[in-house]
Design a protein around this nucleic acid. Structure first.
Lengths: 228, 228
DNA sequence: TCAAACCTTTCACAAACTGTAAGTGTTATA
DNA sequence: TATAACACTTACAGTTTGTGAAAGGTTTGA
């Protein structure tokens, strides 16, 4: 069932939206406490987020930005703010649609349908800036190129991308690759790591795999000039 | 350079749009004779189509539909029609965005940017209803599954999809697979065809490969109930 | 300086993809 | 219905690709 998370403070408005969506067989849940809105939304694992901008105490823009940093879930902004600059701002922060209240039921629903259809295509992939990986086939998309990673390299890459920003331990990787940690020669992992690094080097990729001695591995941006 | 085709009959409006787009470094070309609009648009190989709906002699909806049948190029409808039913109709026919005139320059431009970014992701693929094929890696996307086709099966599939609705001859296929038609045993092609058919059968696909004796092969929809 | 941690190359086995060969179906037409 | 052309299928062996083991080299930090 398709799950939509509604972020809207006005009770009347919220209940109307919920009624409309539920009539279309969507599974709907609402955020009513906006203190940890971004986290609460993400926890629900939504297929789509319906977001108001005028919320008490928090900026809807911040929520929008926060969601987009962590996920590619479609965000539909539905708001009373009809200023062009708000629209541009929201769209720049990663919103996929921007509709003004009041909004016809049908107009809202067709946008939702379209966004969901579009995001279906993304279901295959995990993704960070500039990289996309099909975790079924380990087809790896970089700019205008795509290549197929061998299974082991693909699994390592999957871990590195899905834990981007964190450290991935050898233990985690060995469990992912072989389902167990026992009787596995750590060297086998190192060999595959070497192979993956070689693969990455041949591509035009802005990332490298850093070793954190005694801790694990990490995917890191490279070649970014620091501006002071 | 990114190419945008503008379909708009009003001279004043058209020139204003062209000026705005060219200032943003887009390559712009216009359709002014709408008799064979769809064909003329497609010939230009646009990265995006900017479409008006009120055109003399032709229906903008028809053009929209026609483009979408042949391509996944993003279509942005920019029109004076502000009726909800027109908007719904256009979006249902495959339009990606629907904006009302008059429209702020920035609003238009950011939608264009977003559509183009989104369609970048599609550059890898060729696509017909329900099927997508990455022609670099021959990763094949069907509903919620993706698999990797072996090179030969991938090449055959590429031909069948990109010539969907037409007949693909053995000669064409042999040239695609082996670069030449000489000294190639036609049986080799048949073997690969059998293999591809077997692959397709294992998947939940609505298409089958039909043989046209003495002519060639064709991809066809299957299992569609005919309603009289 | 030295040992632990990590990296790299080479090798041989296993799996996947390929065209060849040989035989089996199918279809149009006389 | 007989026949020949066309199409399909299966088995096989050569080639390529991915894999972990082994052995030796390099880096790091106390």
């Amino acid at each position: 069932m398709t799950k939509i998370v509604v972020v809207e403070d006005d009770v009347f408005m919220r209940e109307e939206i919920v009624a409309i969506l539920e009539k279309e067989q969507y599974e709907v849940s609402c955020i009513t406490d906006f203190t940890y809105a971004t986290e609460d939304i993400m926890k629900q694992l939504p297929d789509l987020v319906l977001l108001d901008l005028n919320l008490p105490g928090v900026s809807g823009f911040e929520i929008c930005k926060g969601i987009r940093q962590k996920s590619t879930v479609p965000i539909l902004v539905l708001t009373g703010r009809d200023q062009l600059k708000d629209e541009l701002h929201a769209l720049n922060l990663g919103a996929d649609e921007y509709l003004n209240k009041p909004c016809h039921k049908e107009r809202l629903l067709i946008r939702i349908t379209n966004l969901l259809r579009r995001s279906e295509e993304r279901k295959h992939f995990i993704e960070i800036q500039g990289l996309r990986l099909d975790i079924q086939t380990y087809t790896f998309y970089i700019n205008n190129t795509s290549i197929i990673l061998p299974e082991n390299q693909g699994k390592i890459m999957e871990q590195l991308i899905s834990h981007y920003g964190e450290i991935v331990t050898s233990k985690m990787l060995m469990e992912t690759l072989w389902g167990t940690i026992d009787y596995i020669d750590e060297n086998a992992l190192q060999v595959n790591m070497t192979r993956l690094r070689k693969t990455i080097n041949q591509l035009d990729i802005n990332y490298k795999i850093t070793t954190l001695r005694g801790k694990g591995y990490q995917l890191e941006l490279v070649g970014e000039m620091k501006n002071d």
